[in-house]
Design a protein around this nucleic acid. Sequence first.
DNA 1: ACAAATTCCGATTGGTTTAGTAGGATATAA
DNA 2: TTATATCCTACTAAACCAATCGGAATTTGT
Lengths: 154, 154
Amino acid sequence: MKSVRFSTRGRYGVQIMVDLARHSEEGPISLKSVADRQKLSEHYLEQLVPELRKAGLVKSIRGAQGGYVLAKKPEDIYIGDVIRVLEGPIAPVECNNQTGKDCCEKTSFCVTREVWVKVRDSINDLVDSISLADLIKDADNGEGEKVNLFEDEA
Amino acid sequence: MKSVRFSTRGRYGVQIMVDLARHSEEGPISLKSVADRQKLSEHYLEQLVPELRKAGLVKSIRGAQGGYVLAKKPEDIYIGDVIRVLEGPIAPVECNNQTGKDCCEKTSFCVTREVWVKVRDSINDLVDSISLADLIKDADNGEGEKVNLFEDEA
DNA sequence: ACAAATTCCGATTGGTTTAGTAGGATATAA
DNA sequence: TTATATCCTACTAAACCAATCGGAATTTGT
């Protein structure tokens, strides 16, 4: 049981974009080559990339020798956009009552709301501060300081 | 489609704890009264609270006129603990390969990892900085500045 | 003209997770 | 001894996830 997870959509999305950024000099990149390099299902990626295209993050070239290219420079693409396109808005909880009125009176639910708002803002601020260029640069330099994703292995 | 969500477990858990904190002078608080005030299923809460007890966050008093009380002062209970007890560790992604070795070589997956690590740390730092006492105090003061949880309503 | 490569699109599926519900056993105050 | 509680183990309906399947449309190279 892990909480506050990104689904594969957002994770793969960022992988795809980084892969495209790294091969951006080579003309259109086929999903097949991305899938091979990243060890992902090409068919599943086919489901994701069109959404990135509709959002204006990549461009597609159809037909043989076609593929995808970034629609903007890597330094102008922030992973927050990639994630939100594929995963929807980052919203750690929903309001009970969509109107927002008549909710949050007296009950301690109202009190807890501010927590979720802060979490949401904190995540959004973070992912909106990291561009594809930042990620590529880190990879070339540090060679990935092997940080540990798991709490229990600290 | 909303991403990076807390489940009801963590959300209700924080609600319960805040409710207990607010009524901490009244002796043991029955889950029934919490459920009534918070408009939640008592039976569902019954599933959550024992986990908080095992984690040492609340104490239970069985039998008639029994209920739950906080095990510590509200200023010593951080919502990060409540959330992690009920939702498990906050881990926005899993590693492909639990050992950590032989993963993250050359592929851009490695590069993206640092993103998830930062997200994880940022959330943990935040929830570990907010105590129950903080939440109650805010409720009494600001009366809840009506922040908006939804991105699209900004 | 044709074959291969490729994006594009919709439907289906198996598995997991979520958010409970059901039903009772145990403990205690009055 | 009854009403009020916690405690515990199953079960379940619905939603969601991560694909897979099958094929249509588009373009390049021969």
